[in-house]
Write a protein that binds this DNA or RNA. Structure first.
Lengths: 112, 112
DNA sequence: TTTCGTTATATCCTAGCAAATATAACGAAT
DNA sequence: ATTCGTTATATTTGCTAGGATATAACGAAA
């Protein structure tokens, strides 16, 4: 039996959360499904929660992360911008690096 | 206006949280005041919450983190073990290192 | 102009968590 | 045996974040 170091990272912009674990998940689901409502269903969260998250993301980002369209063919939809795509790639990479970093720190606690 | 990467780290033992931001704060306050109830007051949290936290810490740690005494001179008290003291030192150091690490990663997001 | 499946938004409602409260157990000192 | 300030624990109360629900707005296509 041994200890584990876990972590949560997130990106803030002007005191507001821009990206976190859940928001990245949502953006990935939007990318996959092409719509916010389908993404919400896929993640098994309410549409309201998903909408609030996405709204918050776009409000705190420097540039738009998704393009949302209302009405029209298929009722509308949501898709990631190039900026949004590169944001989640960067987030994932940083997160992974952070885990590896923390794993190395574990020995400082293991043998106390 | 720029982004910031924030983080929370915690130590788990067998799926249970051992140490986190709040628990470390509590342990420090116990160390300072010599009692759980005084520590709770100092941190402005309810005694119940403090007790639950401390109980959880001691239940998931390999060795005792505090020694609690009931009754007797002064009604009792709580004090950190050597193990507990070195745990919070290690936690603080790892946490600080993590911040510095993440700061270096920031550029990957800044100029996307 | 009607249909369609979205996005967008407001309103209720509830479950679950936190705070508040109460009280028992304890043991050294007097 | 009584007092004292703790630790330890149960119970009730209150609040709020989130879920459920409803519906408006939208615009392309037929």
């Amino acid at each position: 039996m041994s200890y584990k170091i876990k972590s949560r990272i997130w990106i803030e912009s002007d005191k507001h959360v821009l990206l976190g674990e859940g928001r990245v998940q949502l953006l990935k689901a939007i990318d996959k499904t092409g719509s916010l409502s389908k993404a919400a269903k896929a993640l098994n969260i309410s549409y309201k929660k998903a909408w609030n998250l996405l709204d918050s993301v776009n409000k705190s980002a420097k540039k738009p992360v998704t393009i949302n369209s209302i009405g029209g063919k298929g009722g509308g939809g949501a898709e990631l911008t190039d900026y949004g795509k590169s944001l989640i790639l960067a987030f994932d990479e940083i997160n992974k690096n952070c885990w590896e970093f923390l794993d190395k720190q574990l020995e400082k606690i293991e043998n106390l």
